[in-house]
Write a protein that binds this DNA or RNA. Sequence first.
DNA 1: TATTACCCTATCGATTTAGTAGGTTAATAT
DNA 2: ATATTAACCTACTAAATCGATAGGGTAATA
Lengths: 137, 137
Amino acid sequence: MLSKKTKYGIKALVYLAKKGDKLPVQTSTISESENISKKFLESILLTLKKNGILGAKKGKGGGYYLLKSPEEIQMTTIMRLLEGPIAMVPCVSLNYYERCDDCPDEDTCAVHEVMLKVRDSTLKIFRNTSLADLSDY
Amino acid sequence: MLSKKTKYGIKALVYLAKKGDKLPVQTSTISESENISKKFLESILLTLKKNGILGAKKGKGGGYYLLKSPEEIQMTTIMRLLEGPIAMVPCVSLNYYERCDDCPDEDTCAVHEVMLKVRDSTLKIFRNTSLADLSDY
DNA sequence: TATTACCCTATCGATTTAGTAGGTTAATAT
DNA sequence: ATATTAACCTACTAAATCGATAGGGTAATA
């Protein structure tokens, strides 16, 4: 299940991408437009900023803005930042790999095998989807 | 993230499928073989029984056994039973559909669109994977 | 009739989720 | 210079979920 955090984060990014220009937008503007709790959105935009997706400007006329063009921002990046691992099981995760302690052998694990397929197909979609693609709707 | 419940459930079903025959197997046998807490496994097997996947026999020599052949048991069925919806967002779920209260229009929602693609590709894999396929490893 | 193993209910600690509250800091406008 | 603005930071919370445990009831078998 996708967390609200990720969902809100994507919506906020799409909002910024749709604007076209790179002028800063205030948290409250996005929060009102997208029906997101302001304080919660604040924390989300902050992590996006800390991870090089957004820039921020303080004071009057300040706000957040995209640091790259929407075409350059991949879904994989957003998902990993906000949602965490894309894989359903840590033992098939590329960026967050972890061994299963109940599993004697990964190579002969049935769960491992299917989840690897699922990860691959999901990853393919996320890699082929940029913020620009999302904003086309 | 796949829950332990689902993971254990799959492992237990694979265990039963690999056996070949349809003789009842005790919970404790599976729990010891697959490193699963016995009581926890008990509740999992029970829900699988209640939903027509497993049969059960009480008393000495009793246990759980598959009601259908492994080829007839789809991953989609197991996943929906134990894990819940396959979709990452309720608004793209086939069996657990729910409207998003923060979303004015589903058809123009960017999140909706990508998650629909992800659901389709995941569903394709689960539909093409039976318990028999899982047991081939 | 005793044993076995499924079946049921309740509770638990730990973690995560989706916020809320309240303040600090830095940039802008007057 | 000073007031205002809006990003930034810290801490806390209610509710839900997860993984598991405890303790017994019930039906089938030997």
